[in-house]
Design a protein around this nucleic acid. Structure first.
Length: 226
DNA sequence: TGAATGATTTACT
DNA sequence: GTAAATCATTCAA
């Protein structure tokens, strides 16, 4: 039991991140997000992630090869953290994928709490059983204590990492267009939002108004289970 | 130097 | 369903 749990906490190797963002995003599901902080350890099972594929992807911060202080981490080696601040109050956490110089990343949008719920609840100002503890990209950052200080951190060694967990059974993998990127034209149509369709913790962010469900959409974004 | 805006969340009607 | 909160980053001038 203990042995099994420890093997699941093993950090994913660099090779895991040395692939396209789409491949990493899909393979992230079912894996564990682990953060060992001074306040305590939090663990979550990843149930939703989005791929951002570098300079050609109009929805990516690195679109057009834009390389600034903010996007610098995306251009760095795979397996590092790209953390950014949004709307004046929210942090979002990505894992950098692909080779050096290829500015791709995967945004973690939701996890299911596995351990450290009390700490998550304290950070979030909510009850430990609250379904809204970690069902959104900024919510999970707050629950896990992820912010500026983690920018560029190596996820293959250190307190913040993705861990083995257990890969998602293929029949539970669902896709949808990414959230909040209507401005990206045809790129907004790409089904690069991946989620566990059996998880009640998938984020409730509304889908882009102009996007309507297509064949690839196996469950409407934001819809509730049951 | 200044204005616009965003890979969101929350509270309220 | 709509709107407010709130500021780092970006780009234009």
């Amino acid at each position: 039991m203990r042995r099994r749990a420890e093997s699941r906490l093993e950090p994913l190797p660099r090779g895991f991140y040395e692939r396209s963002a789409v491949a990493v995003a899909a393979d992230c599901l079912g894996r564990w997000l682990v953060h060992e902080s001074a306040e305590g350890t939090t663990v979550g099972r990843i149930v939703e992630a989005e791929a951002y594929e570098g300079p050609e992807d109009r929805a990516a911060h690195s679109f057009g090869g834009r390389r600034t202080a903010r996007t610098e981490a995306m251009f760095g080696p795979p397996g590092h953290a790209y953390v950014f601040f949004l709307y004046g109050m929210h942090w979002n956490f990505n894992v950098v994928t692909g080779p050096v110089g290829s500015p791709c990343a995967v945004l973690l949008r939701a996890v299911e709490p596995v351990a450290g719920q009390a700490l998550m609840a304290r950070r979030r100002g909510r009850e430990a059983t609250d379904r809204e503890l970690t069902n959104g990209p900024a919510k999970l950052c707050q629950a896990f204590g992820i912010s500026r200080e983690h920018y560029g951190q190596d996820l293959c060694e250190g307190p913040l990492r993705l861990a083995t967990g257990s890969a998602l059974p293929p029949e539970r993998l669902a896709t949808a267009p990414r959230v909040g990127v209507e401005y990206a034209g045809e790129w907004a149509d790409r089904p690069w939002r991946f989620f566990d369709r059996e998880s009640p913790q998938v984020s409730t962010a509304r889908a882009p108004r102009t996007r309507r469900a297509r064949g690839e959409l196996q469950r409407p974004p934001g819809s509730r289970l049951r």
